[in-house]
């Protein structure tokens, strides 16, 4: 089981990691299928607090839009891998992730 979090704003990837209002969190089973999904509200949290929350949730992978150097450091410090600068809607993006074809800087829909 693996957990992936996506910065989400109105069903699309939120433009900045540190101002994202919420994360869409996906549990992915060993067959690469989504077994569970839920939303975590992180409004008002700092980037460090957001990252700490992801650690507590057991998230191993993050998909986001822009991520400042400071935010990237927080993620790396906690061994959370990430794909950044992604634009598009969350459903399409998670589908690309599951296919294994998602790359940093991609604009999807």
């Amino acid at each position: 089981m693996k957990k992936v979090a996506i910065c989400q704003l109105d069903g699309r990837i939120a433009p900045l990691y540190d101002t994202t209002p919420e994360f869409a969190v996906f549990s992915i089973d060993n067959h690469g299928r989504i077994s569970e999904r839920w939303t975590v509200n992180v409004s008002g949290l700092t980037s460090a607090e957001q990252t700490a929350m992801l650690v507590r949730l057991g998230v191993e992978f993050v998909i986001c839009g822009g991520a400042k150097q400071e935010c990237q450091c927080h993620l790396r410090e906690h061994n959370i891998r990430f794909v950044d600068n992604v634009i598009g809607n969350v459903e399409d993006v998670i589908a690309r992730y599951l296919e294994g074809t998602l790359r940093s800087g991609e604009v999807i829909n």
């Binding site: 704003l9 699309r12 990837i13 433009p15 900045l16 540190d18 101002t19 209002p21 839009g65 822009g66 634009i87 604009v107």
Partner: peptide
């Protein structure tokens, strides 16, 4: 090409956007 048709806050990314 990347910018046209996107929301401005997805391209012109600032902390004030939201």
């Amino acid at each position: 090409q990347e910018a046209l048709g996107r929301k401005c806050y997805e391209i012109f990314r600032t902390e004030r956007c939201l």
